[in-house]
Write a protein that binds this DNA or RNA. Structure first.
Length: 255
DNA sequence: ATGGCTTATTGTATAAGA
């Protein structure tokens, strides 16, 4: 299977890029974040014509998550159980015997802000829910925009960012709590080096200068990690005209 | 130098992203 996660920053704007990417890469599962559209505007028909099923949980203007696959999509679940939230940030489903959870973890805006508190609260509610999911599904992948750079090598300038949002200690501890559930950061099974990013600021020629962050991740259970064959960040869509500020992160495994 | 760009909105400036 080839699986991927991509924050598209408006599916309405990025649909041509997504369709091109599907045709070129033929993934078994593609998780999207920040679709920024209500469910009735989601392009189910266009994706179907391209050979893909899809599920979506969206809202106007903000957030919105989707899972796209050429295979049958079963047992769809939306949101964190026992956590009341208007914001559409989580959708899960089973495909070919693997449980996929697609998340758009809150950005947090700045350390100490209300949005930062919401981010930590969201993660506090999410972690035990994820633990119960892992107990149900041996083969599970958590894909999404985590809005957390887990290590200093995941940030282009740690000295400038340390303590700031995306990099703060509390956020990194929350990320580690996910790892402590038994998950592995699949990208680091293969790529150990620095300068590997999934997001670059639109400003300051961030992409050209590689001033980025690795904040989009695919965490997997041991049952999946033992069959992983490769993982990589596909920078091609970030080079297109009117790109998303994020680019796809891809993982392949032999199941 | 806390901005620089991009998106969406009953817009013509504001909020949000990261």
């Amino acid at each position: 299977m080839k699986i991927a996660t991509w924050n598209v920053n408006s599916l309405n704007v990025r649909l041509p890029h997504v369709l091109d990417w599907l045709e070129t890469n033929k993934p078994d599962v593609l998780c999207l974040q920040e679709t920024k559209q209500e469910d009735h505007k989601f392009p189910y028909d266009i994706l179907k014509e391209a050979g893909y099923n899809a599920i979506h949980s969206g809202q106007k203007t903000y957030n919105g998550v989707a899972i796209i696959s050429p295979h049958v999509i079963d047992d769809v679940h939306i949101g964190i159980t026992n956590f009341v939230d208007e914001q559409k940030r989580l959708i899960a489903a089973t495909i070919n015997g693997v449980r996929f959870i697609c998340v758009y973890i809150p950005n947090g805006q700045s350390v100490g802000s209300d949005k930062y508190a919401y981010k930590l609260n969201w993660l506090k509610a999410f972690t035990p829910w994820l633990e119960s999911e892992i107990s149900k599904y041996q083969k599970l992948a958590l894909l999404g925009d985590y809005n957390i750079a887990p290590e200093n090598i995941d940030c282009h300038d740690p000295s400038a960012w340390i303590g700031q949002v995306l990099v703060s200690e509390a956020e990194r501890e929350a990320f580690k709590a996910l790892i402590h559930l038994g998950l592995e950061d699949s990208f680091r099974l293969f790529e150990k080096g620095e300068g590997q990013f999934s997001w670059w600021d639109y400003r300051m020629a961030g992409f050209r200068r590689n001033l980025g962050m690795r904040i989009d991740h695919i965490l997997i259970t041991p049952e999946l990690s033992k069959s992983c064959t490769t993982s990589y960040i596909d920078k091609a869509p970030r080079k297109l005209e009117r790109p998303s500020d994020h680019t796809p992160v891809v993982l392949e495994f032999s199941i």
